[in-house]
Design a protein around this nucleic acid. Structure first.
Lengths: 137, 137
DNA sequence: CTGCATCCCAGATGATACTG
DNA sequence: CAGTATCATCTGGGATGCAG
């Protein structure tokens, strides 16, 4: 009820009407917000930061196969969208700590549910893929 | 409690340990499952199909700015992961109906919560972006 | 109506080297 | 330590034309 005036059926049709009317990509909440957190590394980093704040190098070690470039860029994007707070400490050498903002923690609620679903149903998805590929042979 | 043996802290560290041990990309549930539904069009199509089954052309009209190629490919991928059922009717000309499977409906639960969060907080994210960009000037 | 094949481009990602 | 810059690469995605 709150903040969600439309039921599901009308929602998808409203998006269509918006698109038909020439509304830009950014006007569709689903695409605009979901795309911002659906990058290759975004969900993993938000998940890590949901636990506690981390420094740049710590995050890097926590996700061993991320490149320095992608770690910098993904954190930058998450910060721009308001999910992550970046704090610089003028030590020597300098250190930078990343943490979730209130908005980030709020978003992690639903995201966490999706992550838990993924963990519970990982094997089901893998089985479906295997079955599909086998049938295609 | 059910089906989720690890608390959040240990989870991210377990993923790291897995990666350190040389586990492949596909062994991380977060990446393997989340990536499959984080394509540019996946969430939108699942959202449409959660309402009711649709035919190919109907989906195309519902999402006006998707190309035929991407519609075919995204539906194919969703079917491969077990979220979507594809049924061909031998009419003339032929028609094909797409619908969510039980797994797809199950996955849409958490996804829907994320979508609702996106709708509720779309403006907050946009504001954060605007503020960030303004500060960078 | 539905779907596949081909060509092609822009953006996403990675590897490496360099800097405050 | 925490980046930035540059170059190379890989993939997603669009346009178009053909086919069952």
């Amino acid at each position: 009820m709150d903040g969600n005036v439309f039921n599901l059926k009308s929602k998808i049709e409203i998006y269509k009407a918006m698109a038909d009317a020439g509304a830009s990509f950014a006007d569709c909440p689903v695409r605009d917000v979901i795309q911002g957190i659906s990058g290759k590394w975004s969900s993993l980093l938000v998940m890590a930061l949901s636990e506690k704040p981390y420094r740049f190098g710590q995050l890097r070690r926590l996700v061993p196969d991320i490149s320095q470039r992608m770690l910098t860029q993904t954190l930058h994007d998450l910060q721009r969208d308001g999910y992550v707070h970046r704090e610089v400490f003028a030590t020597k050498p300098p250190s930078v700590e990343y943490s979730l903002t209130d908005l980030g923690r709020s978003m992690f609620g639903p995201l966490h549910e999706l992550i838990q679903w993924a963990e519970r149903n990982h094997s089901a998805v893998r089985d479906a893929r295997a079955a599909f590929d086998a049938a295609a042979t």
